[in-house]
């Protein structure tokens, strides 16, 4: 089984996994970083969203063999104390219902704001429409992103 050295949340980690193992299962099974969720396995729901070199990607469809020197950030590494502006805004609006999709939503939102500090409604909708919330918290997600953008 091949081995990989990956930089996850600013730490180098050595892992052994089949080359086609999706990053999602490396995170969840090898590194016990279970904040990144399994939803569909085919990049349709966004529950598994993480950052690779700052961009939001669906880790369920990203093989570990493609990781190279890329830096990965998961929900656990988004901020040291859980106080990233997006996380704070999520708490302010009490966005979550069941909460299962929210790590993926937050990672998509944080990637958006890193690239576009002042997204308008259309930019938010476009960046967030790959993330499904089955409980229907879209309105609060949108409000929280706007608030995070201001801070």
């Amino acid at each position: 089984m091949p081995t990989y050295t990956v930089t996850i949340n600013e730490q180098k980690r050595n892992i052994e996994a089949d080359a086609d193992t999706p990053l999602l299962w490396v995170l969840r099974d090898e590194l016990q970083l279970v904040g990144t969720k399994f939803g569909c396995g085919i990049a349709q729901c966004g529950a598994c969203t993480v950052h690779v070199n700052g961009s939001a990607i669906r880790s369920c469809s990203f093989p570990i063999s493609a990781i190279g020197e890329s830096k990965v950030t998961t929900i656990e590494g988004l901020s040291e104390n859980g106080d990233h502006p997006v996380q704070q805004a999520w708490l302010e609006y009490d966005v979550a219902q069941c909460g299962y999709c929210q790590a993926g939503q937050i990672m998509s939102a944080a990637a958006l704001l890193a690239q576009n500090a002042n997204p308008d409604d259309a930019a938010i909708t476009s960046a967030m429409s790959g993330n499904i919330c089955r409980c229907g918290t879209y309105g609060r997600i949108k409000s929280a992103i706007k608030t995070a953008a201001k801070s």
């Binding site: 970083l33 279970v34 904040g35 990144t36 998961t74 929900i75 656990e76 988004l78 859980g82 996380q87 999520w90 708490l91 009490d94 979550a96 909460g99 929210q102 790590a103 937050i106």
Partner: peptide, 11 residues
Amino acid sequence: HNQEGQKIVTG
């Protein structure tokens, strides 16, 4: 506020 909020937003 949701008692579980912080745990949810930090995964």
